[in-house]
Design a protein around this nucleic acid. Sequence first.
RNA 1: GCGCUCUUAGCUCAGCUGGAUAGAGCAACGCCCUUCUAAGGCGUAGGCCAAUGGUUCGAAUCCAUUAGGGCGUACCA
Length: 531
Amino acid sequence: MKQRVSALLREKFGREVVLEKPRDRSFGHFATPIAFSMAKELRESPMKIAEELASSFSESDFFSSVDSVKGYLNFRLSENFLSEYGAWALENPDQFAKQEKNEKILLEFVSANPTGPLHIGHARGAVYGDTLYRLAKHLGYDITAEYYVNDAGNQIDLLGLSIQLYGRENILKESVEYPQSYYRGDYLAPLAQDAVDKFGKEILSDESRQKELALWAKDGVMEIIKKDLADTNIFFDTFVYESSLYEDWDRVMAKMGDGIYKKEDKVFIASSQKGDDSDRVVVREDGRPTYLAGDIVYHNQKFERGYENYINIWGADHHGYIARVKAAVEFLGYESSKLEILLSQMVSLLKDGEPYKMSKRAGNVILMSDIVKEIGSDALRFIFASKKSDTALEFDLSEFKKQDSSNPIFYIQYAHARIKTIISKSDLSEDDIMAATLKNLGENADNLLFDALLLPEIIEDAFSSRQVQKLPEYLKSLASSLHKFYYDCRIIGTENEAKLLKLLMIVGLSLKTGLSLMGIEAKDYMTKEDD
RNA sequence: GCGCUCUUAGCUCAGCUGGAUAGAGCAACGCCCUUCUAAGGCGUAGGCCAAUGGUUCGAAUCCAUUAGGGCGUACCA
């Protein structure tokens, strides 16, 4: 709708027009302060210009009114337009709010090391990424969700060591001395046991077999990670393994030309030429590549696969890393502006106002799976999608266990369930409802209809600005409008029953579509659980 | 020290490319079930948008400085 209005005005005024939401719905559906910017050029008062502009609009099918208030130009869409659009949406629910963007995007997210289950920080990036992915799909982008598996560095050796330590203590019943860093947690138990079953007990004590053990175990860990993700409706299209990339290393180094140089038996990337603070080591003296080396070959591979845009979602603690990866992309001969790096910030958890206790058995991290168990996938997704991903977030678990309006996910679900309930209680057939027109329903109903039809532009805006939280914000406000309408307006048994049901169906469609874009299934019926 | 980032109601957060009286939810205090699920609705109270200065018709929003918080500043991933 907004696009149509804005296109229409652009044509009429011959310039880009800023459209905004009026302060108050009574002003209209859209507003523009264009008269203020024209005032300067024309040396006239904004009020006068606005008045002249307003009167230049004639009666049309599209706008029911255009008027000027204090220099603003306010537009009200016609009932005709709204009702036809609403009817179209209902008849074409699969096309509602969809577009055909046809741009190839590679979205890389999560990419947690295959050394243990996902923790709460990963969960945030995962939800953010998956929500973007769903929005992009809906908008018609050809987007690929990719997971980069770091299976080639020190952390993999550490995984081997950790399994050995766990097995020696718990299976062989040895007393072991733990080094400073190693992985811990319950997930090691089945891995250690399976390893013994497969390779025999010796593998636990043979230091030279750590790598072998780890490379075998990482697949098991990846299964754990995939399960964590699947439990929150997150799925990936492709997995790229770091270990598979190194055969390309010589070619990629050559490709970077002068971007790479040798010094003191080490290989450096001249990233300081491209805005990084200093040059970085990519291959150590002993020939082992650094983490950055893996990222360079990986990003080269990404660009060679040919996408129009690349989006990476990284934990905020990696932000210092952006400059060097972008530098590498430049040396490889690609435009680093095509690589967009989004950060997801830290999460701190509270429970009943107290810091959430990390469990020893989980290895002193807060596991994503524990939180899902506690509040459910829907609530988890809702929380993370509701907040700007690039600011630190603190939230209290107990708030999301409540089943009332303090819990936004229930609030929205309830709105959807209410609609379904009313429809099921009506004696009218679907044909009766679909045949009704949405006219002459009064201001409240018109407003609700307009709100429900805003979904397409919310989706577009949420994706293009990468501000996923706009969607849940919108759904909350739509749910609120619905609840209010429900309270004010009796539906079943009134003369407008068919029309009103049609209106509710449109609202339901928006709610359901919006929720599904957040990876949440709309409920048709809510049952209250007693504590 | 340097870089990035954040600071909006008691708490957790929205506030789009600067625009009309600063927005939710929670918590607090009232009111509304002979109504399609009260898992709801209505209302009251609560803010010098961290501070200062600048840009302009107009700033929570842009710029600069300051203060405070977070993160980074590895040949770790």
